[in-house]
């Protein structure tokens, strides 16, 4: 095979600059999309730079300073301090790292195999292969997501790795289903028939004919899912099945702080708002990407 560009470029369609410019213009013209991009950028940058920018690096770990406990928000501690006297602002910023780590790990494991399974099922419509794959995804999708993750996480010992594992296991079928329906819409197109008649192999048809045509919906879903994976992860942590204290995980922080509600509200509200902030950002960004991609 003659390869003149990377596979990713190929999947994205290797379209010329003009199209990217048009997409960017479309994206830019919606202020909400730009807001989403802004939010995501702040989250990503503060997660990466967290160790250097947080005012109280020692607050991230097992640090106790009871004289400073439950300080309300002030200039010194913008988000206040928790029951151990740790700076909640520092912990929240650091919490972005865990959230993004979770989403990155889960999605990078899930997207490719889930999508390929879905493409195979869509390509082999009306065969046993389709039935087998789609039954399996139906089984996974039939169980409410949080319940499944809860079941898995509670069988295994509660920690960040196992909650990642639980979410991974429940997340792939969404990609299979999406890729399946997008592939089904493409597979009967004459250009696929043409490639088959020429004698192209399965690999070519899946990756060169079909994949570039379903990539935009997959890409949009990935962006939207970052928020949802983080939310599920936070829910598991909140229920005590995810990252354990003293890890500055946003869900864990919400759970710990909840004990002191409503009198000390800040240990709960600020991490909770951070979760909302991340989800909002990725949702706005995802919607913007979808609109931009659907313009061509």
């Amino acid at each position: 095979m003659v390869e003149k560009d990377g596979i990713l470029w190929k999947l994205l369609g290797r379209e010329h600059k003009e199209i990217y410019r048009r997409r960017w213009y479309k994206f830019k013209s919606n202020p909400l999309s730009v807001l989403g991009l802004g939010i995501v950028a702040t989250v990503v940058f503060s997660a990466i730079l967290a160790p250097y920018i947080i005012p109280y690096p020692e607050s991230v770990g097992l640090y106790m300073n009871f004289t400073e406990a439950f300080q309300p928000p002030s200039l010194k501690h913008p988000f206040g301090t928790d029951s151990y006297g740790r700076d909640i602002f520092s912990r929240t910023i650091y919490g972005f790292r865990y959230s993004l780590l979770l989403a990155t790990v889960v999605l990078s494991i899930v997207v490719v195999p889930g999508t390929i399974l879905g493409m195979i099922a869509g390509y082999y419509r009306d065969t046993k292969i389709e039935t087998a794959i789609m039954r399996l995804t139906d089984i996974f999708l039939g169980v409410p997501p949080l319940i499944l993750a809860l079941a898995i996480a509670s069988v295994l010992s509660p920690n960040l790795i196992n909650s990642m594992f639980a979410i991974t296991l429940m997340w792939w079928p969404w990609y299979t289903r999406l890729a399946y329906s997008s592939t089904s819409a493409v597979v009967n197109e004459p250009f696929v028939k043409a490639a088959q008649l020429i004698g192209a192999g399965l690999k070519h048809i899946l990756f060169n004919e079909i994949a570039p045509n379903i990539m935009s919906s997959i890409l949009t879903k990935v962006t939207l899912d970052v928020g949802w994976v983080i939310l599920i992860g936070a829910s598991l942590s909140f229920l005590g099945l995810g990252a354990q204290p003293p890890t500055p995980d946003l869900g864990t922080m919400v759970a710990e702080g909840a004990k002191y509600l409503p009198y000390y509200w800040w240990p709960t509200i600020f991490p909770a708002m951070a979760i909302v902030y991340i989800i909002l950002g990725f949702n706005l960004l995802g919607d913007g990407i979808r609109d931009a991609l659907s313009s061509d």
Binding site: V2, A194, A195, L197
Partner: peptide, 29 residues
């Protein structure tokens, strides 16, 4: 055996360049 379909707007992959499209039979055959 070659085939030309009725509607070229569906028989050519919209996400491939003309070069990609024409080079497939060259690679295969």
């Amino acid at each position: 055996i070659g085939m030309v379909f009725q509607d070229p707007s569906t028989s050519l992959n919209p996400r491939q360049t003309i070069e990609d499209i024409i080079s497939l039979p060259l690679k295969v055959h």
